[in-house]
Amino acid sequence: MTIADPAQWQDLFTRTVDEQPVQFVRPADTDRPTWTTYEGDTYLGTVSAEPDGGRPLWRVQGIHEAHRELDDAIRAMRRPASWPREREEVARWAHRLLADDSILAVDVETTGLKNAYAVQIAAVDRRGAVVLNEYVQPDAVIEKAAVAVHGITPERVAKAPAFGELLPRLTDVLHGRAVVAYKADFDRGVLENELVRHHGGNTAAANEWLGRVRWEDAMVPYAVWRGLWSIKRGAYRNQPLDGPHDAVADAKLLFERLEQMAATVPAARR
């Protein structure tokens, strides 16, 4: 459907969500923007559009959730039966992580997405204190697409220290600590690129340095916690962190997401 106002949508239509057609049927006893949904002969649930400024919220009846995107409402109704248990496991994981006094949230802004180098590195502790915030002269091209995301131009980092100059402090901050990142394999990979270059191609030295940090990834657990099931991928959809792409602000936001997850652990099971 392409009509902006859901109240004007048809009583019967089909929408494809993650390559799977979903049939929408408006109940005969209402003219409100409410539809029951089916995949083939399988009933998924009922969704209703509620006004919320310029865009509707899609409320899923029966599970007391509202989603900005209609497709996400459908994904919520597609959750496997195992989701409540999986969500509780993730919540307990977040609770344990936040109870670790050594935990740091780390974020790295980069020159791009492939073979990337750092242009900003930040670490924030559990109390929200910034223990590291450094811009980095990457000695590499900063892609225009990356600048459009984080706003860090070559001019901004032209006089910033190189990674090698920051390495002693970075070592003091991270070694022996638990580090949580959003898509940790990416941030860890950026540091690996920097370390390999710093050590003249010596991957063993880079891996030894990285191995002295206990890495935790929050992206997949947060996807499970949100529980938006992609029938195409056969997995929960990864969610954007929705931060401003400033390393400090994103690290602080990551702790907020962990606190949201941890808050759903039943008190008796913590």
Rank of each mutant, 00 (worst) to 15 (best):
H95M: 03
T42M: 11
I152G: 06
E165S: 09
T37M: 09
W229S: 09
G128P: 02
A162K: 12
L12D: 15
L253Y: 12
E256M: 08
V17E: 02
I103L: 02
A160P: 04
A204E: 15
F163S: 05
R177I: 04
L132R: 11
E143T: 11
F186V: 06
K144P: 09
V157M: 01
H64S: 13
T264D: 15
V60S: 09
V147H: 12
A160V: 05
Q20L: 08
T34W: 05
D107F: 01
V124A: 02
R127S: 15
L70A: 06
G40Y: 08
A206E: 12
A145K: 14
H67Q: 12
H199A: 12
L195D: 12
D29W: 14
M77A: 09
I3E: 09
W83S: 04
W93T: 00
R126S: 05
V220F: 06
M1H: 14
W225G: 03
R85S: 14
I142S: 10
E39S: 10
L254G: 00
T110Y: 12
G40S: 05
V180C: 00
H198D: 00
F24N: 05
L44M: 07
A105L: 01
T264Y: 10
A218C: 04
L195C: 02
A235R: 11
T14H: 07
A66H: 06
Q23L: 12
S230P: 14
P161F: 09
R233M: 12
K252H: 10
Q8Y: 13
T34K: 10
E155W: 07
P84C: 02
E208I: 05
L210R: 03
D52E: 12
V265T: 03
P138M: 04
H150Y: 15
S102K: 00
Q239S: 07
D5I: 05
A66P: 05
D242I: 10
R257T: 07
Q120A: 13
F24S: 11
T16L: 09
D71C: 10
N202M: 04
E192A: 05
G54H: 15
D71T: 06
T30I: 13
L132C: 08
D41W: 10
K144A: 14
T2N: 15
D72V: 08
L254K: 01
S102A: 03
T37S: 12
V213T: 06
N207C: 08
T203V: 14
A267V: 09
V157A: 07
L113H: 12
Q61H: 14
P266Q: 13
R177Y: 01
Y135T: 12
P33W: 07
V124K: 00
H199S: 13
E192W: 11
W9E: 07
